[in-house]
C-alpha cells in the first residue's frame, strides 16, 4: 500500500517535509510500547502510536520502520518533528483513535506484523 493511500484512508496530516508519497508500506503495527515495536515490527511497516516523545522516532530509526503515524490528533512537539527530519522518517498525524486507524487500514488490506504475515 502506498503512503498516499494511507494518508487518504486515515485523513492524515503530514508533519514534516517528507514528500515521497509513493513510498510502499507492506505492514501495519499499532503499539505504544517501544520494546514491542523493536521486537516484532517488520522493517517495511507503518507504526501507529499514541506515544508522543522522541523515542518513537529513535525506535523507528533503529527498527527500520518506514513511517510513523500519531493517532488521536495529539499535539506533536517540534523536537520530535526535527528529529524525524534528521532521521528522514515520514511523520503523519491522524485524528482517529488507534482502534479506528488500525481498523480502517486492515480493512483496506494492510497486513499486520505477525510472523507469517497473514491477517
Amino acid at each position: 500500500m502506498q503512503l498516499r493511500e494511507i494518508i487518504k484512508i486515515l485523513e492524515c496530516k503530514i508533519l514534516n517535509s517528507f514528500s515521497n508519497l509513493d513510498l510502499e508500506i507492506a505492514h501495519g503495527s499499532g503499539c505504544d510500547q517501544m520494546s514491542d515495536v523493536l521486537a516484532y515490527v517488520k522493517s517495511d511497516a507503518l507504526l501507529l502510536t499514541g506515544l508522543t516523545n522522541t523515542q518513537v522516532i529513535r525506535t523507528a530509526d533503529i527498527a527500520d520502520v518506514k513511517a510513523v503515524c500519531f493517532v488521536r490528533g495529539k499535539t506533536i512537539d517540534s523536537k520530535i518533528i526535527q528529529l524525524s527530519e534528521e532521521m528522514k522518517i515520514p511523520l503523519l498525524s491522524t485524528k482517529l483513535p488507534m482502534f479506528e486507524a488500525c481498523g480502517r487500514l486492515y480493512k483496506a488490506g494492510l497486513k499486520g506484523c505477525e510472523e507469517n504475515g497473514i491477517g
Binding site: 505504544d32 510500547q33 517501544m34 520494546s35 514491542d36 523493536l38 521486537a39 502510536t49 506515544l51 516523545n53 523515542q55 518513537v56 525506535t59
Partner: peptide, 11 residues
C-alpha cells in the same frame, strides 16, 4: 513513556 513493560532484556 513507552518503556518498562519488561521486554527490554528478553529483546
Amino acid at each position: 513513556l513507552g518503556f518498562g513493560a519488561g521486554m527490554g532484556l528478553p529483546n
